[in-house]
Design a protein around this nucleic acid. Structure first.
Length: 547
RNA sequence: GGGGAUGUAGCUCAGCUAGGCAGAGCGCCUGGCUCAUAACCAGGUGGUCGUCGGUUCAAACCCGGCCAUCCCCA
């Protein structure tokens, strides 16, 4: 396979609360498996994410807790960084939108789009609190919902009926800080001229026949309704400054600036490794594929607005694929720490090893539709698939060899049906992963593990050890070879466990370089050691989660 | 209010692009095996494919209505 370069960007998590397992299933785990797969087959990957730290939800929270917005962002930046590390999700860089370098990039981007005519000045109507003396973000206005008459609807959304609102729609609107009735005044803002790019976007989207159906359908429908100018600045003070005189009380709105964080991340990474122009190869070489891993809530931003911004700027690679996942739910409901639904990643990691969690979540990844997380399923999937089918396979082969003190000679098994079966499984696995079918690729792996156990049983080494040493050597060697395939295929999903098993199998090259050696015959210096995986128990897991 | 998805075995999910005998894993039952972590293998059990209608020789799949759930937007 020809080595290629790939850019993998993952949605920037909002630094306003802990990461829950729904976030991981929506974007990060699939990305991490995809990145590890690409590196395994020799591709060069730049893997970027970061912390989205501006915007009103953070200021609302900060005010509630009596802290500064920056303090809130600091807390969750550190926490997210640690959570990802603990889950073995290792970005090349995890940037922050509050870095000064990011403000510079966002401002430069803003000015370029302004010069190109894709950003223009305009006015909008916004709530102004006379008592406080400034325009208030939509979230700071509360009133009665005009649809369901819920009395505490926010200016941007009603928490009761879920409808998105405009503060002007509210019955009897009040400023939540002063309690005053706001005045709706005209205010000057900047707008992104999505309308100017509509035709260009349409023809670009029409080439994306390989996108996931949900992403494509959503995007096409969104665009067929016609694109409108969209405000990209707000009357707030927590955000990137507008790089023009006379706008001190306004900031660039978070969604516009956060998307540019991908570029900031790539640039800062390039600086850090002493190759400051490296990022350009990923963004300007048209041969490089740019992937964006996001949850379904983020589709319009990545499939339309971000491409529009990149087109408006000119020269940048547009997204190659946006493999947006649906949602992982908990008992049918969306995960939410604040509403106490489901578990945070940190909680789960107190109860189970990272690889177990990665394995289970990968096996239910919501690639085609929402899927449901449960502790019972976590325990039973890990125990019966990962540990019984695969871990036990490794252990039974190694134990057998150890028990009889065998030394195996390498033999040519290329012509064997079983070897060809493993090879076909591996090739299907490669195909699936190159198309970002992370869950399907894992089920290929499980099929092969079941097949390998069947072969071990059929070959009856406990009989041949007594009467046919040549067949014994051949069959055990073949079992080990299939297990080698399995371990390579497991590696992107459960990296630390796969490395451990690689060591148990005693394969004479590293797992990172295994791709070029897979079809070669070589010795195995297996060593038994302890069992590769400890099983988990529902009660123990629950009690660790609840204390 | 508009839109995107989802609904298939007791559980978690494939299958739908291109209509052709309803699938996998788990669970459960029976048998086998001993290298193994009550493991593994073989066989079996189990479904009105949300629902109502339409197209068709033939519909889980295509079309329309309805219901439920998740998500997005004015």
């Amino acid at each position: 396979m020809v080595q290629i370069r790939i850019l993998v960007n993952c949605a920037l998590p909002y630094a306003n609360g802990p990461l829950h397992i729904g976030h991981i299933a929506g974007a990060y785990l699939g990305a991490d498996v995809f990145v590890r797969y690409n590196r395994l087959i020799g591709n060069e990957v730049l893997y970027v994410s970061g912390s989205d730290e501006y915007g009103t939800p953070i200021t609302v929270r900060a005010e509630k807790e009596g802290r500064s917005p920056k303090e809130i962002a600091d807390i969750y930046y550190e926490e997210h960084l640690r959570t990802f590390e603990n889950l073995n999700i290792n970005f090349d860089i995890f940037m922050r939108t509050t870095w000064p370098e990011h403000s510079e990039n966002a401002q430069e981007f803003f000015l370029k789009l302004l010069n190109e005519g894709y950003i223009e000045k305009g006015t909008m109507i916004a709530p102004f609190c006379r008592k406080i003396g400034r325009f208030m973000p939509d979230r700071y206005i509360e009133g009665t919902c005009p649809y369901c008459h819920y009395p505490k609807a926010r200016g941007d959304q009603c928490d009761n009926c879920g409808r998105t609102l405009d503060p002007q729609d509210l019955i009897d609107p009040k400023c939540i800080l002063s309690g005053e009735t706001p005045e709706f005044r005209e205010t000057e803002h900047f707008f992104l001229r999505l309308d100017l790019l509509e035709e260009k976007l349409k023809s670009w989207i029409s080439t994306k026949t390989y996108w996931k159906p949900n992403v494509l359908a959503y995007t096409q429908n969104f665009i067929s309704g016609g694109l409108k100018k969209r405000p990209i600045t707000r009357d707030i003070d927590w955000g990137v400054r507008i790089p023009l005189d006379g706008y001190d009380t306004k900031r660039i709105y978070v969604w516009f600036e956060a998307l540019i964080g991908y570029i900031t991340g790539a640039r800062e990474y390039s600086k850090r490794i002493g190759n400051p122009d490296l990022w350009k190869e990923y963004y300007f070489d048209p041969e490089v594929r740019n992937y964006y891993f996001i949850g379904k809530d983020n589709i319009p931003f990545h499939a339309l607005i971000w491409p529009a911004m990149l087109m408006g700027y000119g020269g940048f690679n547009l997204p190659y694929d946006i493999p947006a996942n649906e949602y992982l739910t908990f008992k049918g409901q969306q995960f939410s720490k604040s509403r106490g639904i489901g578990y945070s990643v940190d909680d789960l990691l107190k109860a189970v090893p990272a690889d177990y969690l990665r394995y289970y979540v990968a096996s239910i990844l919501p690639e085609t539709g929402d899927s449901d997380f449960s502790l019972e399923e976590l325990v039973s999937t890990v125990n019966s698939d990962l540990i019984d089918k695969y871990g036990n396979l490794v252990y039974r082969i190694v134990s057998f060899i150890d028990k009889y003190g065998l030394t195996l000679d390498p033999v040519d098994v290329n012509g064997d049906e079983e070897f060809q079966y493993a090879r076909r499984s591996f090739e299907s696995w490669l195909d699936d992963l190159s198309g970002v079918h992370v869950k399907r690729a894992l089920s290929r792996w499980l099929d092969l593990a079941i097949y390998a156990n069947g072969f071990f049983n059929r070959s009856e080494p406990w009989k041949t050890v007594k009467n046919d040493r040549q067949k014994l050597n051949h069959d055990l060697y073949l079992s080990l070879k299939i297990t080698e395939f399995l371990t390579v295929m497991a590696y992107p999903y459960i990296p630390s466990s796969a490395i451990k098993i690689w060591d148990i199998l005693g394969i004479p090259f590293s797992i990172d370089s295994s791709y070029s050696h897979l079809y070669e015959m070589h010795g195995f210096s297996v060593h038994r050691g302890s069992i590769p995986f400890e099983k988990i128990d529902l009660e123990a897991v629950s009690s660790k989660l609840n204390n």
